[in-house]
């Protein structure tokens, strides 16, 4: 068995350098790789291209990297929760490529499945379609969208084993499995790391072949973006 365990976030990201293209899992603040983001902030790598559904909030998640101006370009579907992001975007310090959420996910999937491109109806007839090839199948137009090409994918899972197999918990799964498949090098941080053999092979979400480095993260904050509750009747 190939052992993929590294000591922690610092070691896991040690060869991420300026200008790298990174995928970062998560939806909003749910299921984001907190440990690796903090390590990237400490390492102060710059000019990063970040593919992530959202851009964090001002003081958490990718927002921490934005604050230090480590990000050159964000590729996201929705970035509305971050004032510093807005400031950098309006001042021209930051580039942003907004793409439909399903297109974002499926471009990850295509990369992980070894397919160079996908056809999707999302964005046909809108500014998203500008400059893109359109093909008609069965009387309906589809845009050709390319598979992503990312140097690193950084994901967060609930459990993982020393062989790199991953299990996600609840809706913190979101983009994590498809990004895990899509990176040239995939780094997984997990809440609980166990020995190979302890996870039931039938319940693995991401097979270890897609994961190159794994470690047990620490001090997860798991911040809630919109705390909504109902009253006890």
């Amino acid at each position: 068995m190939i052992n993929k365990v590294v000591s922690g976030a610092e070691e896991a990201i040690k060869d991420i350098s300026d200008g790298a293209t990174l995928m970062l899992g998560g939806f909003g603040l749910c299921g984001i790789p907190e440990n690796c983001i903090n390590a990237l902030v400490n390492k102060q790598v710059k000019n990063l291209i970040c593919i992530s559904n959202n851009a964090g909030v001002d003081d958490f998640g990718i927002g921490l990297m934005l604050k230090q101006r480590q990000v050159k370009k964000m590729i996201s579907s929705y970035v509305g929760e971050n004032a510093e992001f807005e400031r950098q975007l309006l001042s021209g310090e930051l580039e942003v490529d907004l793409i439909p959420q399903g297109t974002l996910a499926t471009r990850c999937l295509a990369a992980g499945y070894g397919m160079p491109a996908i056809f999707t109806p999302a964005g046909v007839g809108t500014e998203v379609a500008e400059g893109k090839e359109i093909r008609n199948f069965g009387g309906k137009d589809y845009l050709m969208e390319y598979a992503f090409d990312a140097d690193f994918a950084i994901v967060k899972a609930w459990k993982g084993d020393t062989a790199g197999n991953l299990i996600f918990r609840s809706t913190s799964r979101n983009f994590n499995p498809v990004m895990a498949m899509a990176g040239k090098i995939t780094i997984a941080e997990v809440e609980e790391l166990v020995e190979a053999g302890e996870l039931d092979p039938d319940y693995i979400h991401t097979p270890g072949i897609y994961v190159h480095r794994i470690f047990q993260g620490k001090d997860y904050e798991k911040r809630i973006e919109q705390r909504t509750v109902r009253k006890v009747q």
Binding site: S76, S77, Y78, V79, G80, E86, L89, L90, L98, P100, Q101, G102, T103, T120, A122, G123, T126, V128
Partner: peptide, 10 residues
């Protein structure tokens, strides 16, 4: 400020 289309276009 453009926040993005999220899943609406899909």
């Amino acid at each position: 400020m453009v926040k993005g289309m999220g899943g609406a276009m899909d």
